[in-house]
Nucleic acid binder design. Structure first.
Length: 424
RNA sequence: GGAUGGGUGCCCGAGAUGGCCAAAGGGAGCGGACUGUAAAUCCGCCGCGUUUCGCUUCGUAGGUUCGAAUCCUACCCCAUCCA
């Protein structure tokens, strides 16, 4: 197993991945390149159903899949309903809390639907995407059979040498037998897909290297050479220049589900990125051509705002569709451009009765501040503006008559903007 | 199993002669100013609430006391050393 940097890929697919910064390490870069060049490759990436929605942290994987599918390869989106019952110890210093099965199954379904936004599931196409849940085959496993068929190919000696387990052991932190099995299950997933779908490649974040390589080796041992050797390739761990993990913003995780994070807020997440990350984000999270990106990134200073707007628009378009992206862009210009027309800005409707400013800003759908106490302090320091002018009195009461047809323009802090309507 | 040290707010980490402790300091975060919805910088906030006051917090459960993060008891967990 090598960790070869791909110097000069011949296949368009690998070249595109490399050009856009998706390649960290590969089990056999030359062979992967050759496979991509030779014809359609079926590959898979696994997602943990730990929540009802994927978030921006999953985007690297999603965009890589999308890119490969566009180069004619076939993606399998595996949602780990089975492995979630175990909990991946990778990168964790502590055991994850166990999730109950109903929650897992609900998450699997929700995440499966989200994959449709990034991948093409049109079955008339030869490389249409497939969605699978490893609970389908893992939960039915017989313990003894599994041990005889799969367990026999693993040595504990080798397993405890891998980074994931090594770290736990070195730090003398408990590693339950349950978790220790995670790697076998993921390796088996790969084998299962190799046999059932002709899947010869697994991609994933760099933290998955150990689990992925375990699958590659398992296939080499038992998979015969049905579809040739299997490979894996990892993506770099994406960190923002300010050190924050990709996918976290001031108001929490950047969910891909519009119900959990509005397209407007999603757009804002990209617009407010650090200058230093613009190029990297454009490459990975938009479909803009590499050459054009290089051109765009020649912009400096305030001109970068335009580039960020482009980034935000393109990224939002992929996740929420063109219409939503247009609307988010319009809303952003309205809300942040000093306009009095906020017609595109998200609106919330409050009951038709007098309401105090303090209660308004902590309203369930606004939640500009985390508590009333915070809200009071922020209001008093001038953080809240109504129709463009600061309102310093938390107790200021709004009567139904104060709400115009198109709503009150509420501005709380740097990012939070809403139109507030009073409805009946 | 034995010995010793320790468990403090989102994180790190002071505080242990009982009151001046909602708890130093740093980081993160938030708000304001300046800007470009960026960065840096400066200022402010940073448990919650019906806010010149009230309530709930310093591993868990009790106890002593007018009063406990600080003392006592039991329990749980962690670190290091011994077996």
């Amino acid at each position: 197993m090598t960790e070869t940097e791909v110097i000069d890929p011949k296949s368009p697919a690998l070249a595109a991945l490399a050009a856009r910064g998706f390649v960290e390490q590969a089990s056999d870069a030359a062979q992967i390149d050759a496979d991509f060049a030779a014809g359609m490759v079926t590959f898979y990436i696994g997602f943990d159903p730990t929540a009802t929605s994927l978030h921006a942290g999953n985007l690297v994987c999603l965009m890589a899949m999308r890119l490969l599918q566009r180069h004619g390869h076939r993606p399998i989106g595996l949602v780990g309903g089975g492995t979630a019952r175990i909990g991946d110890p990778s990168g964790r210093s502590e055991t994850r809390k166990m999730m109950d099965e109903a929650t897992i199954d609900g998450n699997v379904a929700a995440i499966g639907r989200q994959l449709g936004r990034f991948l093409d599931f049109d079955e008339s196409k030869p490389n249409h995407a497939v969605h699978v849940d490893n609970a389908q085959w893992l939960c039915a496993q017989k313990y003894i059979s599994f041990l005889r068929d799969v367990g026999v190919h693993f040595t504990v000696n080798r397993m405890i040498a891998t980074k994931t387990y090594r770290e736990r052991l070195d730090n003398e932190q408990p590693l339950s037998f349950l978790e220790f099995n995670y790697q076998l299950l993921q390796a088996y997933d790969f084998l299962h897909l190799y046999r059932g779908h002709g899947c010869t490649m697994q991609l994933g974040g760099s933290d998955q290297w150990g689990n992925m390589i375990a699958g590659v080796e398992l296939i080499r041992r038992v998979g015969e050479a049905e579809s040739g050797p299997a490979h894996c390739l990892t993506f770099p761990l994406l960190t923002m220049s300010d050190g924050r993990k990709m996918g976290k913003s001031e108001r929490g995780a950047v969910w891909l589900d519009p119900e959990q994070l509005s397209p407007f807020d999603y757009y804002q997440f990209w617009v407010s990125c650090d200058d230093r990350d613009v190029r990297k984000l454009l490459l990975m999270f938009t479909d803009v051509a590499v050459d054009e990106i290089e051109e765009l990134c020649k912009a400096e200073g305030a001109a970068l705002r335009e580039v960020k707007a482009r980034l935000a628009f393109e990224a939002t378009k992929i996740c929420h569709g063109e219409d939503a992206a247009e609307q988010a862009r319009t809303a952003a210009v309205q809300a942040f451009g000093g306009s009095e027309d906020w017609s595109a800005v998200p609106a919330v409707t409050v009951p038709p009765e007098p309401i105090k400013l303090l209660d308004l800003v902590v309203h369930d759908e606004i939640k500009a501040f985390s508590s009333k106490r915070q809200a009071r302090q922020r209001i008093e320091s001038g953080a809240v503006k109504i129709d463009g002018t600061a309102q310093l009195d938390p107790g200021h009461e709004f009567a139904p008559a104060d709400f115009p047809e198109e709503g009150l323009r509420l501005q709380a802090g740097k990012k939070c903007r809403f139109r507030v309507l009073m409805g009946g």
